[in-house]
Design a protein around this nucleic acid. Structure first.
Length: 493
RNA sequence: GGCGCGUUCGUCUAGUGGCCCAGGACGCCGCCCUUUCAAGGCGGAGAUCAGGGGUUCGAAUCCCCUACGCGCUACCA
């Protein structure tokens, strides 16, 4: 019989989920979806010192943004509820007691101070760090008695002979020397379990089949394997995903840029792009596909196609994908996206509310020009003021070169040509014809002199197409901006 | 330091003994299109497959060694 795949994402509520964690969630979710299995969400809040209020909501929000939905979890419940570890304490206690009863764990009364001294001594003597087994041989009766009055942890007795073998789904067989292991804390003195114990208890209770996690966990795999064995439980399969690294080839961190997933939403990235990007950080559909939809991922994902080597987070690639998906957005939906983002990201001196008709007309022009949604406001801003955004007079000749007064004949010709257009004839085509007519009067190709008009109209030599822009601006504002440019050129020259 | 993982164009990757003097994508460069910028189309440069030994008729693909990178080494996850 083939088992039903059950995977989980088990974050700690210690802050905003980072892209690395979310990539892990994405893969776990994709595996469940691709195999017709279940994906669950479990909150691992066993470290009371590091709890950050609001984290759980941010975790929900992050997953939802990408469309990663869970079949069981803290909010939706499920057959193995609760899905929050702090609400499952009796289970861990029971497992810890069971371990003691089986002779595989013992109470440890060592204080933090003694542990620090021990480590310092080991470091000084160039010994490998690790618990020295100080409390391992305390007679059970003594231990039980002291437990009533002394704070203590429960340590797991690692087997010290032989090897522990992990058959990793991504890396193959990994062997660990047991002699190098030490007895780790399974239940802390505050009664909360450590990650190690909680993992085994919950993955077993929740019938998880595949533990998918980052490579930073591979070193503690022997602890988990031995814990399963000591408790007489069948271990899950393990898949250790490669790490995601920053441009500096170090594990991605705040230092190297944005890492919180939701920062990408704030910065104008699309969830489709994020998923596509993250999916390809370690996994591939085939030899040539680089555009991967959510459907492709949830239909075709497999751990066999996950590589073991770490991947550098390449923002250029993300930007490319984001631009690609932006261009896929249907016209109507794009208009509302443009409206939302223009309101949010246009410069503060641009009056609100923005003109909806203007936005609707500018939308298609923007669609093929932005890679991120937060570029919409700045790019469209020039459409909403009476005058063009502030610019230095020299910008007028930035592209054509030469002295500032070289802009004068161009502006004069434009003024003459456009002023001749009647208000009702102020259309893109008529504007284009008028400006192209300047080629004859100036004896210059259009491309040689348009940049001056771009600056006059938009405040910079590049931007939305000139003829469309002038039409949108209307006759009055267009002519005014040309006059302003002329004045600037004249006075500064 | 110890242990573990990893190592194919700058980056993400394809590749599981001959189809590879290594394919795709991003980025970069050039051309085309063109009112700027983009988008799009076409083309180009770019990897002696980390290095060295083997195994084999034949290796990016198998084995060993070395180097380098990263991760872990808590009553954190």
């Amino acid at each position: 019989m083939s088992e039903i795949v059950r995977t989980r994402y088990a974050p700690s509520p210690t802050g905003d989920p980072h892209v690395g964690n979310i990539r892990t969630a994405l893969f776990a979710w994709a595996l469940a979806r691709a195999t017709g299995g279940k994906f669950l969400l479990r909150i691992e809040d066993t470290d009371r010192n590091r709890l950050v209020p609001g984290s759980v909501d941010t975790i929900f929000e992050s997953l939802r943004w990408l469309g990663i939905e869970w079949d069981e979890g803290p909010d939706v419940g499920g057959p193995h509820a609760p899905y929050v570890q702090s609400e499952r304490l009796p289970l861990y206690r029971q497992a810890a007691d069971d371990l003691i009863a089986r002779g595989r764990a013992y109470r440890c009364f060592c204080t933090a101070e003694r542990l620090d001294q021990m480590r310092a001594a080991q470091a000084a003597a160039k010994q490998p760090p690790g618990y020295d087994g100080h409390c391992r041989e305390i007679p059970h009766a003594v231990s039980a008695e002291r437990a009533a009055s002394e704070p203590h942890t429960i340590r797991f007795k690692m087997r010290r002979e032989g090897v522990t073998v992990l058959d990793d789904l991504i890396r193959g067989r990994v062997t660990f020397e047991n002699a190098l292991q030490d007895d780790f804390v399974a239940l802390k003195s505050d009664g909360y379990p450590t990650y190690h114990l909680a993992l085994i208890v919950d993955d077993t209770a929740m019938q998880i089949t595949h533990a998918i996690r980052g490579e930073e966990w591979i070193s503690s795999a022997p602890k988990h394997l031995q814990l399963y064995e000591a408790l007489g439980l069948e271990p899950t399969k393990f898949a250790h995903l490669p790490l995601i690294m920053g441009p500096d080839h170090k594990k991605l961190s705040k230092r190297t840029g944005d890492t919180a997933l939701l920062d990408y939403r704030k910065n104008g990235y699309l969830p489709e792009a994020m998923i596509n990007f993250l999916a390809l950080l370690g996994w591939s559909l085939d030899a040539t596909t680089s555009i991967v939809s959510v459907d492709d991922l949830t239909r075709s994902f497999s751990l066999e196609r996950v590589v073991p080597n770490p991947a550098v987070f390449d923002i250029d690639r993300l930007n490319f994908l984001n631009g690609h998906y932006i261009r896929q957005i249907a016209p109507h939906a794009w208009v509302s996206t443009v409206t939302r983002w223009a309101e949010r990201t246009a410069p503060d001196d641009v009056a609100r509310p923005l003109d909806p008709a203007m936005l609707a007309k500018a939308a298609p022009l923007l669609q093929e020009r932005v890679a991120r949604l937060d570029e919409i406001g700045p790019q469209a801003a020039f459409l909403f003021g009476y005058e063009a955004p502030e610019y230095e007079p020299t910008a007028l000749v930035e592209k054509i070169g030469g002295p500032l007064n070289g802009a004068l004949p161009i502006l004069d010709a434009a003024l003459a040509a456009l002023d001749a257009l009647p208000g009702e004839g102020w259309t893109k085509d008529a504007i284009e014809a008028a400006i192209r007519g300047m080629e004859a009067t100036l004896g210059q190709k259009l491309r040689k002199f348009v940049s001056v008009l771009y600056v006059a109209a938009e405040g910079k030599p590049t931007g939305l197409p000139l003829f469309d822009s002038l039409e949108l601006l209307g006759r009055e504002r267009s002519l005014q901006r040309l006059r302003t440019a002329r004045a600037k050129a004249e006075h500064a020259a």
